[in-house]
Design a protein around this nucleic acid. Structure first.
Length: 920
RNA sequence: GCCCGGGUGGCGGAAUGGCAGACGCGGCGGACUCAAAAUCCGCUGUCCGAAAGGGCGUGUGGGUUCGAAUCCCACCCCGGGCACCA
């Protein structure tokens, strides 16, 4: 019987759906497992990246199910967002139509995966049923004072009179029109995520990757220090206070100037008339630069003097106030005190503009720091100097109060009313306003007197008007029927036209999955009481900070708003303790990498080279796609480049060529003599554009090879956390494996040369495979699980050919292999399982039990090293004693040759694996 | 620039501080075939060697250790994120 993946996959997908095999229902008698894969954006076609994210997660959900859990594995669409609106502007398709077409298409593509999605729980964030509750959450946030109005910078296109997304701005210009974009302050809606900053730093009780926790910790950026007020002594701003936050209050006596952000509210009043033109020019220029450009530390320091001064409260000194764009209005107070002697950025700034540098920390055992001879700031430990009351206090490398000098400074500031001990966070409040159409409306009303009030619950959701046109800016601002409302007193008012950041939709979707039709609240407490929290969350590491931090914040805010009170009551009714279950959304998190397009064929290079000491050193290199083999000393495809070393496939051999600076380079479309750097650049650009442009279409592969093969390949060919470029040849190995499984599952096995040894050996291998597949599943290293199954396939194929094992062991092998493979390749294993006479789905079977006694090897190859090098291998019993291992090693003929004429200094034994002999 | 991760054969990758390269792709050789494909068998890090065997080898340089892909320090390169892509 031939393996026909098309009919097998179609048949089983239909039967599973008809039989509701993957419906997840609350069952308090069974342990639950909520497996979640990240909310999918309906971008159009399902691509290999979706398969890569979802099918291993599906396999693990299936594995958990066979392990005895009642598993929920839902799916839905993150359907609001910028691309739909871009399609509307560019191609005249309504965002809703574009989005729903994509969703329909992706639904059918997703079904071809054979995943155990419970489609009856599907949720789509652009449906009014869904965004009603997104709006409801906003209202809750507003009522609790978490949602508030504030000012933030936007990318403003004066030409289009609209706000642009960061990705629409390239080099300070609109990517489509090429017109300039400026940074502009605008009043918008925020969520006060900073109130949860301290709690978000606590990852206790959740199993998340260390790097993600580190990135979030750094993003939140808690630092301890002091707030200090500098006072403006004269001019228009006389009496105003410039507040700075500093982590180094001990260096206040060395503060010789101040720097404020170009957007600082006091810029105008501090600036003197002489300096006004220059300052205004500088502020305007800063508005055209992105934050990333402004803070990059390798750039030249820029800044201008305002002409104004401020008084340093610790010593009464007047210090000049400068404006510079490396100070950001969004971080700290938007003003800094500059201590050039002990901060490198301040030092460079001071040297660029000839500002005073006063050392206040004296490194011990060195000559006193002397300003003119300093070549950089000093940031190490020492003793305070030039600092009045702090002189002589020790400075360590510790942060905060743990550093004696900082502790002394804080005490002095508080005692003298010059400043307050304070904690600053790098994280900013979450800007949730978007000046766009295709998002969840913000359910707020602007009254005639300038106040804001929430839309009454009975009027939720605020529905997006459908009959609108797209010219560039949000149609909401020009749709009178949408704008015109009455406030709570019945007076005419204006509806809020900002919509919400789509991260808002994706901050609670896993709650909606629990009960997408529920209309009495965002989710059904009875479902939530059983399924929450999410046990396994899988998705891309590109979401390490923002989405995952917003999601954590959201759940904590929900908890504090009492959203879970009914859920908690339901839990208690079922004797489940709700303690701390609503502190974090995702108990376990794992990230996959990205699948890139297939790597292109490399550049064909023609190289003239000299052979020097067996290496090739190029005198000229040119890139020429159709060069003849005889065109140079080395001609062929570039396989790899590392720095100025090229590896070129020249005929059958890979030749390594060094390209010195003296070589002449010719790159197409770049006239004249080129440098090595240009060659590198050319090769780099080609690679990237190609790898990003080559989209691999899973549909064709599913038709040609079957979903089981594609799933197996995706789980086998990559290190899941890392990802990598697609390789269209590699998939044949997985196809052959699946075909071999078919042969093993359908062969009419009859022992012909059966031996007990062979049966014992195969059983051993079967149990070793259970262990290895288990390990791979538990550690998300699917490739090792598949490799173990392939190795078992090799043994089974061999046993079948020889007829060397008993029928009972053969059948144990087939059944075990099918069960172990079932999560990875669900269709073929189901088909073979049924063909073998089983009535109940393989996906409802219990996972095979591992027996370590059966898996144990009785003989082990022991390695014998002499001075760290392997010199012999000896077969020993697995339970060999240290004494026996050493005497066997020392008695070895080969070891005696290697130790002859030397004295044995030491013998290290790690029986049964290794004996290491040190001799000289 | 800052934060996080990675670098192992021609390629994807494996390896609780203890045999580097499991498993697979590709390649080479052979069987089957009129032939090709498919399939099956064998070999396949690299250099020296007829072989036995030996030297070298996990981005680069140093260190710890009887022993390092694995731990430590410095550097180079690649990927992700940097708050309006999601």
């Amino acid at each position: 019987m031939a393996y026909d993946h098309r009919s097998i996959e179609a048949t089983w997908q239909k039967r599973w759906e008809d039989e509701e095999l993957y419906r997840a229902r609350v069952d308090w008698d069974r342990p639950k497992h909520y497996a979640l894969t990240m909310f999918a954006y309906p971008s159009g076609d399902l691509h290999m990246g979706h398969w890569y994210a979802m099918t291993p997660s599906d396999a693990r959900a299936r594995y958990q199910r066979m392990k005895g859990y009642n598993v929920l594995f839902p799916i839905g669409f993150d359907a609001f967002g910028l691309p739909a609106e871009t399609a509307a502007v560019q191609r005249g398709v309504h965002p809703a139509r574009w989005t729903w077409q994509n969703i329909d298409r992706m639904r059918s593509q997703l079904r071809s995966m054979g995943a155990m999605f419970d489609w009856q729980r599907e949720a789509v964030s652009c449906e009014p049923d869904y965004y009603k509750w997104t709006e409801w959450f906003f209202k809750k946030m507003f009522e609790r004072g978490i949602a508030y109005r504030g000012e933030a910078m936007v990318n403003w296109s004066p030409t289009l009179q609209t706000v642009l997304a960061n990705e629409q701005v390239i080099d300070g210009k609109d990517e489509r029109t090429g017109q300039p974009v400026i940074q502009k302050l605008m009043e918008q809606w925020f969520f006060a995520i900073t109130r949860y900053a301290d709690e978000l730093l606590d990852f206790e009780g959740i199993d998340w990757p260390e790097p993600i926790k580190t990135m979030q910790t750094n993003w939140i950026g808690r630092s301890e220090g002091a707030r200090v007020d500098f006072t403006i002594p004269d001019g228009d701003a006389v009496g105003e206070k410039l507040t700075v936050f500093t982590t180094r209050p001990d260096t206040l006596w060395g503060a010789t100037f101040m720097v404020i952000a170009p957007e600082h509210p006091l810029v105008g009043s501090i600036t003197t008339d002489d300096q006004r033109d220059e300052v205004e020019r500088y502020v305007a220029a800063a508005a055209s630069r992105t934050e990333l450009e402004r803070t990059a530390e390798d750039k030249e320091k820029s800044g201008v003097f305002t002409g104004g001064f401020a008084v340093n409260p610790v010593n009464g000194e007047k210090v000049p106030v400068w404006v510079a764009d490396y100070v950001l209005i969004s971080y700290g107070t938007g003003a800094i005190m500059a201590v050039p002697a002990h901060d490198q950025r301040d030092f460079e700034f001071a040297r660029s503009f000839g500002l005073r540098i006063v050392p206040v920390i004296q490194p011990e055992g060195q000559d006193p720091l002397h300003e003119p001879s300093m070549t950089g700031s000093y940031v190490g430990p020492g003793v305070m100097t030039n600092s009045g009351p702090l002189d002589g206090v020790a400075v360590t490398e510790k942060k905060g109060r743990a550093n004696p000098s900082i502790a002394a400074a804080l005490d002095w500031l508080e005692a003298n009313g010059a400043g307050t001990e304070s904690i600053n966070f790098r994280i900013r409040d979450w800007l949730i306003s978007r000046q766009r159409y295709w998002g969840s409306p913000i359910p707020m009303i602007h009254t005639a007197d300038g106040a804001v009030e929430a839309v009454p619950d009975a009027d939720l959701p605020v529905i997006l008007p459908e009959d609108v046109e797209f010219h560039g800016r949000s149609p909401l601002v020009e749709t009178p029927e949408f704008l015109a409302v009455t406030d709570s007193t019945g007076a005419p008012a204006r509806r809020e036209t900002d919509t919400m950041d789509t991260f808002m939709c994706s901050s609670w979707y896993w709650f909606r999955y629990l009960s997408p039709q529920f209309d009495e609240g965002p989710f059904d407490p009875e479902e939530a009481a059983y399924w929450l929290p999410v046990d396994t969350y899988t998705g891309g590491a590109e979401h390490a900070v923002m989405h995952l931090l917003y999601a954590r914040f959201f759940v904590k805010a929900m908890r504090d708003m009492g959203v879970f009170s009914e859920t908690e009551a339901a839990m208690i009714a079922h004797e489940r303790q709700p303690d701390q279950l609503f502190d974090e959304p995702f108990t376990m998190l794992r990230n996959q990498g990205q699948i890139l397009g297939e790597e292109r064929i490399g550049d064909r290079l023609v190289i003239a080279a000299d052979e020097v000491d067996g290496r090739y050193v190029a005198t000229s290199v040119r890139v020429e796609p159709d060069a003849d083999d005889a065109a140079g000393d080395v001609v062929g495809e570039l396989m790899r480049r590392t720095e100025n070393i090229l590896q070129v496939q020249d005929g059958a051999a890979v030749v390594t060529v060094e390209v010195p600076d003296s070589a002449t380079i010719q790159v197409p479309n770049v006239p004249g003599a080129n440098e090595v750097n240009q060659l590198k650049h050319h090769l780099e650009i080609q690679r990237m554009s190609k790898s990003k442009g080559n989209v691999v279409n899973p549909d064709e592969l599913v038709v040609d090879f079957g979903a089981d093969t594609v799933r197996t390949y995706l789980m086998f060919a990559f290190e899941w956390q890392k990802g990598g470029p697609w390789n269209s040849q590699g998939i044949m190995g997985s196809r052959r494996f699946i075909e071999d499984v078919w042969k093993i599952g359908t062969v009419d096995y009859a022992p012909s040369s059966e031996t007990d040894d062979a049966s014992v050996a195969l059983r051993r291998r079967i149990h070793q495979t259970i262990d290895r597949v288990d390990n791979g599943m538990n550690t998300f290293k699917w490739n090792t699980s598949v490799a173990a199954l392939m190795a078992l396939r090799n043994e089974m194929t061999d046993a079948a050919r020889r007829g060397s094992v008993s029928a009972a062991v053969w059948n144990e092998g087939v059944d075990t292999m099918l069960k172990l493979l079932a999560p990875i390749a669900p269709h073929i294993t189901e088909e073979l399982w049924r063909l073998r006479g089983n009535d109940v789905s393989i996906h409802l079977q219990a996972w095979p039990l591992f027996d370590s006694a059966i898996a144990a090897e009785d003989m082990i190859t022991m390695v014998v090293q002499v001075n760290g090098k392997v010199r012999d291998r000896i077969e020993v019993p697995a339970d060999v004693t240290t004494e026996d291992a050493e005497s066997l090693a020392l008695a070895s003929e080969r070891i005696r040759e290697w130790t002859e004429g030397t004295t044995i200094r030491k013998v290290i034994s790690r029986p049964p694996k290794l004996v290491s002999i040190v001799a000289n």
